[in-house]
Amino acid sequence: MLTYRKAATIALLFPPAGVPAMVHSIRASRLAREGEIESARHEGERARDWSWYAVGIGLSVYSVAFLTWLLLANNHAVARVFFGWATLTDGAAWKSMLKGFWINVQVFVIAEIIVLVWALVVAVMRLLPGPACRPIRFLATVYVDVFRGVPSLLVIYIVGLGLAQANVPIVGDFSDIQYAIIALSLTYGAYVSEVYRAGIESVHWSQTAAARSLGLTYSQTMRHVVVPQAVRRVIPPLLNDFIGLQKDTALISVLGVLDVVNRARFINNSRGTLAAYSMAAILFLLVTIPFTRWLDGLIRRQQAKTLAGR
């Protein structure tokens, strides 16, 4: 545990708060020596409070200073290149970017819906009991291992370029967007199925015991008792994985689709800048941040509900 004096010394790194911290800590020592324990403790607390201010405000101030220096260094290089005002305020550029971003949005919305269902199927496959189902469990495990282990980018390449070339009927004729949806669904289906599986396994065995004791078959038990409870439990952490999916839609650009990334590149080339990448980043944040906040609220409400009945 840091003493008041040591904390104040560190706090001096940010003098506006560090100096008061040090002053209080010196007073505290003096009062302690004079036997005024009560006041000494009081001063010590003030020293500690100021030390915390030093950390919080100091870190913020230094971070901003560093970022500003970064932006302005090298003859404003970073500011010019990544935040060129001309491009950032170009309405036509934003219009083109929004057109492209709409494609990314479509991809992740549809992929999310597919993943919600597909991942549950895979999770149930992995949990089917009995020796007769071992091949199914094995298949599901292989699928999960492979698609969690291969980077999304490579999956998109293999699915988007490979499948198209194989000239397989129907599957060989999808559009690039559809390939992207399939690739992302395969990858994130693997992650999310593990979340579902953890959820299913977290439903206490006594629920299964009660359901089976009533005469419900294994599949009826899963369908009406276990899975509904599992899904309710894991929806929040599961939605967390979706934030990754939303960002990974940027990868569909490698298939040549004129999504927000490729349109950004085009703008960058037209304007000799990289500011369009910042614009694309802003668009992604406009989606992921509200989603995250909503998700936090969902988790909070769910926890409140769970604790209410106790």
Binding site: Q207, A209, A210, A211, S213, L216, T217, P228, R232
Partner: peptide, 21 residues
């Protein structure tokens, strides 16, 4: 056939085990 057996025999548990959802 275990399911047939369980239609004939009911059980109530110490921890109730009602379906919370």
């Amino acid at each position: 056939d275990v399911d047939v057996l369980r239609r004939e025999v009911g059980i109530v548990f110490q921890s109730f085990n009602l379906f919370p959802h």
